[in-house]
Amino acid sequence: MSQYFQHALVAVGAIVTFAYGQLLPHLFAGRMPQVPGENVMAMLLGDARQEISFALLEKADDYFHGGMRHAECDHELSGTPSREPENCSCAEDGHAHDHHHDHDSASTPSGHSFDPWRWINRRVHVQEHRHAEGEDARELLPWLWAACRTSPRNIQAYESSAYVLSRMLKRPQDAMTLLEEGVRLNPTSAELEFSLGELALHSLKDPARAERAFAAARAKCKPEPGEVGEDARFLQGRILFYLGYLAHQRGDHNQAADYLAEAVREVPKHVGTRDLRNLLNRQHEDEGKKP
């Protein structure tokens, strides 16, 4: 009898707790410590989410390299090119390759004595790396998804995920949806708008959508003076190139010239500025040759 009473008591307690939990936000509307719309992850982890998200992104990068952490390789898992691209010595062929590690040597760093433990380790653990290609890129998605969900502020996670979806898995529409979500969650990010523009232009062949995205990126990109703003200035150069190119494509040469003038003023040494100048000069030359 007392056991039934205990069970009933537990059930009543659970119902009361549930009802109280539902009632609390209504009773103290606007005075709850949580930010409206935040999920459980945000409440539990706080700012640590960003670090966890970066760790998950690194894990995705490891998967891209066949499970190897490979800092020496220039083939990064990202749609964003590095500012100073250096050619990786490895070919883009998807085959396993190494960066000239001395696989057979089991010598110590000083290079004198034989170390059997090192010899075994080098044979048991994979020393070379390979790049995920085609359908193999699916394996990266769980980690990229987790990186995006853990911290919606991780812009690089959105960029890399969009890159994998659009370029490697040929799913540009899914990439577009993801980038739009990223833009919604990071309204000040010029990088995401730029990625959206590139995706619309190259994969979806939608220049109008691309131009809107590049224009939004231009409005959001405000480089700080000095070395701190170097990355933003590089991005600004690329944005202005695309805007000038798209204006030129739709025949608005004055607008294109305005973008070139802005690029010359803001980022005169940028490769995009040089390319845009060449493009517009060719246009003038072609017009001059016409009878």
Binding site: G66, G67, W117, I120, N121, R123, V124, H125, V126
Partner: peptide, 29 residues
């Protein structure tokens, strides 16, 4: 050196097997 016995990376990422003589050396260890 318990890390000798950890073949998770090879297994998960479908790398080839370890040479059997190395495998034997690790078991002897």
């Amino acid at each position: 050196h318990v890390e000798f016995f950890d073949l998770r990376q090879r297994l998960v990422h479908a790398w080839p097997c370890v040479e059997w003589r190395v495998c034997l050396a690790v078991l002897v260890y």
